[in-house]
Computed example of a mutant assay.
Amino acid sequence: MNTKQSILQTATSTITLESKAIANLSELLTDDFAEAVQLIYNSKGRVIITGIGKSAIIASKIVATLNSTGTPSVFMHAADAIHGDLGLILENDIVICISKSGNTPEIKVLVPLIKKAKNKMIAITGNIDSFLGQNADFILNAFVTKEACPNNLAPTTSTTAQLVLGDALAVCLLELRGFSSNDFAKYHPGGALGKRLYLRVNDLSSQNQKPQVNLEASVKEVIVEISEKMLGVTAVVEDEKIIGIITDGDLRRMLSKSDDISSLKAKDIMSNAPRRIQEDAMAVDAKETMETYGISQLLVEHDGKYAGVVHLHDLIKEGII
């Protein structure tokens, strides 16, 4: 077997092993999972998630997911907790401890301190009979038969299982809260993902110039308008309503067909019934319309009147594409 085949075989084996372990998690779910979700949902405090080693990294990721979906959460490294960070935990907070073995020295020191403070504790562990499992109020079973590591040592399958249980918690809480796309945008205002959820056509078109000519405009006037407004297009407007559109492509086609353009008017070269969009529509809807019809611009309307142009470049600039 050559090197490439060996690499692909190992990758396939890893993915298959982990996917089977993840599928098995659904068989390990108990009422503890549902009760843990309800506990978090009804809590007036935060979720404090802790772990050691690779489990700490997974804890940090779950914290990020919960925070972005409406459940206030804080990461607390288990080693730091027993050296001063235990003060992070407030009276109404719920603690999630993540540990494959459930028997690490840090966990054995930390768990009694949490119980002494009377905070509810949820365990995500691969060993429900461990010290952590025996002392937790709720147990989420993350048992896996084997790590993907050929030596069965490096946390691979086990950390994937922990992460999936964290995702399951987050999604269940999201649904209980009725967390909508608008809520999601509120927590992600700066990224491209958030912009897809809140950015509207008017937010883009209002930054552009507003090219327009009347039906009787000469070809020269059309060319000047398109050039000055720098959008590659002009609307043909009458009584503030869109009658047609002229693009720089229309001008090129006109020149290839006509030797004498001196008598031509905007109405002679415009395209009728151009694609348009309402200014309060979502920017992502403009993107989908442009992709569907293979165009680069859309004319924008407000209350049936011409309101401007949104260009493909606007969407690219804002990260919508």
Rank of each mutant, 00 (worst) to 15 (best):
A36K: 09
I277F: 11
Q9T: 10
V74G: 02
T145K: 13
K120I: 00
G84D: 13
K4L: 15
P211V: 00
A307L: 00
A59D: 07
T16C: 02
L199W: 04
V222P: 03
E291S: 10
L90G: 11
T159K: 14
L197W: 03
H302F: 02
G304Y: 09
C149A: 11
Q212S: 14
D250L: 00
V213M: 13
Q5V: 06
V309E: 05
G84R: 07
K229A: 05
V144Y: 08
F138P: 11
Q207L: 15
E279R: 07
A123P: 06
E35T: 13
S13K: 14
E279L: 02
E216W: 07
A266G: 14
S73W: 04
I261Y: 08
L204T: 06
E27H: 11
D280I: 02
L132H: 10
E228M: 02
I261S: 04
A64E: 07
I57M: 14
S206M: 10
K146D: 01
K108L: 14
R46F: 03
P105S: 14
I48F: 05
I124R: 08
N135A: 14
A79C: 07
T247R: 01
R276K: 15
A142D: 15
Q207H: 06
V63H: 06
V74P: 01
D183K: 01
M1T: 13
I321S: 07
S73V: 08
V37I: 15
A34R: 08
N67Q: 10
S181R: 07
E228I: 00
P211E: 02
V310H: 02
K257P: 03
S206F: 10
V222S: 01
N24D: 12
I82T: 14
L174V: 06
V219L: 06
L174P: 06
F75M: 12
L132Y: 09
E238T: 08
E225P: 03
T156H: 08
S55Q: 06
Y198K: 09
T14N: 11
N42D: 12
S55V: 06
C172Q: 05
C172L: 04
E91R: 15
L163K: 12
A185H: 02
V171A: 09
S218G: 14
S206R: 13
Y293I: 00
S99Q: 04
A81V: 06
H83E: 10
K44L: 05
L298C: 09
Q209Y: 04
L215N: 03
P112W: 04
L299S: 10
H313R: 12
G191I: 11
I49Q: 12
L90A: 14
A34S: 14
L153Q: 12
G84L: 09
G51L: 05
G191M: 10
V233L: 02
V233A: 03
D32C: 08
A117T: 04
N141L: 07
R177Y: 10
D248A: 05
V109I: 12
G194H: 05
I52H: 01
L264R: 01
S73A: 15
